[in-house]
Design a protein around this nucleic acid. Structure first.
Length: 715
DNA sequence: AAGATCTATCTTTTT
DNA sequence: GATAGATCTT
């Protein structure tokens, strides 16, 4: 039976492999101790990766559990998992535990294989994001009265200057106490039993040196994006018998500003004596696009095409972004009328804010569009708060989360930071004592805590981990948990946002319960894992629907376009000073060029690039990007967009309207908000030592005496 | 404590 | 090339 199955599979593979070219097949079959594949754009890199994993598993009998497959984003990890399961539905989630981002794999190792206790953590540790780390740092700075400059940029500084701190360099750039802060911060994180993103890697690396966990294979996707820590992680994870297979494209390095190692391929070859293979053939784009793209290659050999030069690249000159947006509307309508799906059309730009005008004009012209901006949990205040509640509930050592949950302006208890701190620190010293007391006289405790408002949520959080019925295989209903935390009250049932908030939380809880059920773990443990994942996976974990399916034109930055492909690509704002964005260094400049390269190689069939004679932006020149002149003339059709009088006056009006709306939007962002227990949230009109004036939707402007303390000013 | 001067950063974004 | 923040100057 098994033999038969095996043979069938072998037949399948032969079929499968017919679709691979010889370069791809070489890469799939290669079993050198270390191998790096220099994969050109659109050369079937992910296909090779998947085939390789299947080949190793089914043909070479390497258990999937012994493979570590590393990606840089959750999206990429998800794609690999999806394609793998599609080909081989028998693969289970447990088998691919170590398939994921560097950070999620590190988390998994720390939870399952590495002795974190040796470094002063427990297995219950939680994960914090950079913002929380910065907040924690600020606390320490205040407490220890450290002199740290540029506090507003602390998040960035913490990350950037950590390297030189580790290398024992002098803190020469800024003369302040930042380097005194690092050890204190480390100590505090240990005390609160939590790790930052980089801690996950760093601590894994140091523990891997003591306790080796050598997988049979390490497979890395997009290896050109590795930063120093990730390279170290690879090194620490790789045993002498471990084989390394890494795929990437040095021409697509567009994130070096966040610490990408510059010459990854060279380093890999040096360090692991890796063999180098290449995937030169591009199946995606037509020959004109590829010939243009070849002019922008910085590394490796020419991209070989597999297609004809069907049409030229169009370069269009527009008066300004408004005229361009109108033109795009028209063109997209035509294309759609001609049978092209909206979702096969994409508009790329250099800066996020360039989407504003497009959005306004597209909605006016009723063109469905989708702007790709990453939503994070932080954008949803209720969820952000509730996750803090859960974080403290799962990890009572996390004092910081406890305080933040209790003092949250919107959903927390009406209690001051000082009081919350006292409450928690008091509990810290005699946790067991208190928990015993509460077990013995729960009714009484409940009463007093409701009287002294600040107690309700606090007790619920501390007692969460002690609930016996949640330490069993029975997973509670989402409504039960909702009720346990008294959320119907905490979410302010009288406010207009209540219904939405309730739905959000119940949705989240449902995902959490589902997770516990599929993972077959106890509710408490499941919650801890899930909450950790939420730090690492962000919205991916509980997005309602993957937004991929809807038929709409995609609007995105060039950065966001990486890894995607479309039939028809518009690349807008190709002006000097915009696309290359005015940048100082030469290295930066090279990266702008790679960004342009990534942009144009997303197009399968049609590529249109445009620029403005009146860009109307600071620092943007009216001449076109010099990259455009680098494209061989015979591949290009230069066009002027004509505009008659009628149209011009319409545009004037449009311009005014849109600019007005944008100004309002910008003002709204700067507006301070305030919350009142009865009227809900409103816009802060004025404030002095005595009074606050707030405008509430539906109630109008109200004035309050500050001394009453009913109004919380939100930050 | 105000005013002058220096300086970094802006943009891109993942975990 | 502007601007915000920190630092220096009086």
């Amino acid at each position: 039976m098994k033999e038969e199955l095996q043979e069938n599979l072998q037949e399948d593979w032969k079929q499968e492999w017919k679709q691979l070219n010889s370069y791809q097949l070489d890469a799939v079959l290669d079993e050198s101790p270390a191998c790096v594949v220099n994969a050109n754009v659109g050369s079937g890199k992910t296909t090779v990766l998947i085939e390789k994993i299947l080949y190793l598993h089914f043909q070479k009998r390497v258990p999937l559990e012994e493979m570590v497959v590393l990606t840089f984003t959750n999206k990429a990890a998800g794609e690999i998992a999806e394609r793998l399961v599609k080909k081989e539905p028998s693969i289970t989630r447990e088998q691919v535990q170590y398939f994921g981002t560097f950070h999620s794999v590190a988390l998994c190792l720390l939870k399952e294989k590495l002795p974190v206790e040796e470094l002063g953590f427990t297995k219950d540790f939680t994960v914090i994001d950079p913002e929380e780390e910065a907040d924690l740092a600020l606390e320490i700075i205040a407490e220890r009265k450290l002199n740290v400059k540029y506090k507003n940029r602390l998040k960035k500084r913490l990350e950037q200057e950590y390297r030189s701190y580790l290398q024992g360099k002098e803190n020469s750039r800024q003369k302040d106490d930042l380097f005194l802060l690092y050890p204190l911060l480390e100590e505090e994180k240990k005390k609160q039993n939590k790790m930052s993103f980089s801690d996950l890697l760093r601590i894994s690396i140091s523990l891997l040196k003591r306790e080796s966990v050598y997988p049979s294979w390490i497979i890395v996707d997009e290896v050109q994006d590795s930063d120093g820590l990730q390279m170290e992680f690879l090194e620490a994870l790789k045993g002498n018998e471990t084989k390394l297979f890494a795929v990437g494209d040095p021409n697509q390095v567009i994130y070096s500003w966040r610490g990408t190692v510059q010459n990854t391929f060279y380093l890999l070859k040096q360090q692991f004596e890796a063999k180098e293979l290449s995937l030169p053939i591009n199946y995606r784009s037509n020959a004109s696009i590829l010939e243009a793209a070849n002019r922008f290659l910085q590394f490796g050999n020419k991209i070989q095409g597999a297609r004809e030069a069907e049409s030229k690249i169009i370069i269009k000159k527009h008066y300004d972004p408004f005229q361009e947006a109108e033109y795009l509307s028209e063109r997209i309508c035509e294309l759609h009328a001609g049978g092209l799906a909206y979702s096969e059309i994409a508009v790329f730009y250099r800066l996020q804010k360039q989407s504003d005008i497009l959005e306004k004009v597209f909605s006016k012209n009723e063109i469905p569009y989708q702007v790709s901006i990453r939503k994070t949990i932080k954008d949803i205040p209720v969820l952000n708060w509730f996750i803090k509640v859960l974080r403290f509930s799962c990890n009572p050592a996390d004092v910081q989360m406890g305080i933040e949950a209790l003092t949250d302006a919107n959903y927390g208890e009406k209690c001051t930071k000082k009081k919350a701190k006292e409450l928690l620190e008091n509990a810290q010293t005699k946790t067991k004592d208190i928990s015993k007391k509460t077990e013995n006289m729960p009714e009484q405790k409940k009463e007093t805590s409701q009287k002294s408002k600040a107690g309700g949520l606090y007790w619920k959080m501390t007692k969460f981990a002690q609930k016996e019925e949640w330490r069993s295989a029975d997973i509670p209903l989402e409504e039960e948990i909702f009720a346990y935390f008294g959320l119907n009250e905490a979410l302010h049932p009288t406010t207009s946002s209540y219904a939405e908030d309730e739905r959000t939380i119940l949705e989240f809880l449902r995902k959490l319960c589902d997770y516990c059920k599929t993972e077959k773990c106890f509710f408490i443990e499941g919650t801890r894992d899930f909450v950790n994942s939420s730090a690492l996976y962000g919205m991916n974990l509980f997005e309602k629907e993957p937004d991929g399916e809807c038929d709409a034109v995609r609007l995105m930055t060039l950065h966001a376009s990486k890894g995607l492909e479309f039939d028809h690509v518009f690349l807008i704002g190709a002006n000097q000073g915009m696309l290359p964005l005015h940048s100082q260094g030469f290295e930066m400049e090279e990266e702008e060029c790679r960004l342009f390269f990534v942009g144009i190689t997303r197009a399968r069939n049609k590529l249109e690039i445009s620029y403005y004679t009146n860009p109307g932006e600071r620092g943007v020149l009216s001449e076109c990007s010099r990259y455009l002149r680098r494209i061989p003339a015979h591949l290009v059709e230069w066009e002027d967009h004509p505009s008659d009088e009628q149209r011009r006056s319409n545009l004037q009006q449009l311009r005014r309207e849109v600019q007005e709306q944008l100004r309002e939007k910008a003002e709204e962002k700067d507006v301070k908000r305030a919350r009142h227990p009865k009227y809900g949230e409103g816009i802060l009109i004025s404030e002095d030592e005595m009074m606050v004036e707030v405008e509430f939707e539906g109630y109008g402007r109200k004035q309050f005496l500050k001394a009453f303390g009913e109004v919380d000013i939100c930050k």
